[in-house]
Computed example of a mutant assay.
Amino acid sequence: MRILIIEDDTAIAANLYDYLAGAGYEPEHAADGVTGMHRAANEEWSAILLDVALPGMDGFTLCRRLREQARRDTPVLMLTAKDTLDDKLAGFGHGADDYLVKPFSLKEVQARLAALVKRSTSQVVPNVLRHGDISLDPGTLAVERAGRAIRLPRKCLHLLQLLMASPGRVQRRAELEIAVWGETLPDSDTLRAHIHTLRRALTAEGEPNPIETVHGIGYRMGRSDAP
């Protein structure tokens, strides 16, 4: 899961980055509000850790613009030294999903992030995903390619949904394994076998293989030339 840390305190940002990276997340860092707003609005994130007192643009303004102007519903966990009830209400009023007062426990940050991401993904009813001539309806789990219905095992469906949700982005093996199998990780060949099954189903009528292997890293949905 990609996490954007928008924090100007380099020590706090480094601690968050190292802890989340060690826990299997993919953290990125922005040190000011303007950069943070640009990245939050123009890239896909599982969640955002947002400081309030930022140079360039404060966290309250950033969060409000993210919701109202960029129309992004990415979960936002505010991190701040401001601990009054009015401060917390202001954070929620500007669009934050949760609020954590400094100093905080890194374990609590991770726990709250996990809860926010789970809540967000369980509540969102996404549109039909499309990649070239392939479509996947997350609501019905119906998969088609050029109008041909494709039946897939459930875990292959989950893999396809993850890959189609971020076309072009390389998804690491560990990231896919955690998303599909949770804490009970499969053996080293299980993911490869499921990718093989998925590819075989998608290319059963001689269509080009849409899933690229990025050797030593993971997989991604390749370029689509279809409209």
Rank of each mutant, 00 (worst) to 15 (best):
M1W: 09
R2E: 06
I3S: 07
I5R: 02
E7S: 05
D8Y: 04
D9N: 10
T10M: 14
A14Y: 06
N15C: 09
Y17G: 02
Y19H: 13
A21K: 11
G22F: 13
A23Q: 15
G24D: 07
G24L: 11
E26H: 05
E28K: 09
A30S: 11
V34K: 12
G36Q: 05
A40Y: 09
A40P: 03
N42A: 07
N42G: 11
E43Y: 00
S46P: 03
I48G: 00
I48E: 01
G56C: 10
G56H: 00
T61A: 04
L62R: 00
C63Y: 08
R64K: 15
E68V: 15
R71M: 14
R72I: 13
V76Y: 04
L77C: 02
L79G: 01
K82Q: 13
K82V: 06
D83G: 15
L85C: 04
K88M: 12
K88G: 09
L89Y: 10
A90M: 12
A90I: 07
F92W: 07
H94Y: 07
A96L: 02
A96R: 05
D97I: 09
D98M: 03
Y99P: 01
Y99D: 04
L100R: 05
V101F: 07
P103D: 05
F104W: 01
F104C: 11
L106N: 09
L106A: 10
L106M: 12
L106Y: 06
K107P: 03
V109W: 01
Q110Y: 02
A111L: 14
L113C: 03
A114C: 01
A114T: 10
L116C: 04
S120D: 15
T121F: 07
S122G: 02
V125T: 13
N127S: 14
R130D: 04
H131K: 11
H131V: 00
G132I: 13
G132C: 14
S135D: 03
S135T: 15
L136S: 06
L136G: 03
P138L: 07
P138N: 07
T140P: 03
V143F: 02
E144I: 01
E144N: 07
R145M: 02
I150D: 04
R151H: 11
R151T: 15
K155H: 09
H158Y: 04
M164T: 10
A165S: 15
G168Y: 05
V170I: 15
E175H: 12
E175F: 06
L176N: 11
I178H: 06
I178N: 08
A179G: 08
L185W: 03
D187G: 12
D187K: 08
T190E: 12
L191I: 12
A193C: 10
H194D: 11
T197R: 15
A201D: 05
P208E: 06
N209E: 12
P210A: 09
E212Q: 11
E212M: 12
T213H: 09
H215W: 10
H215K: 14
I217M: 13
G218A: 10
M221W: 02
G222A: 07
R223H: 14
P227W: 12
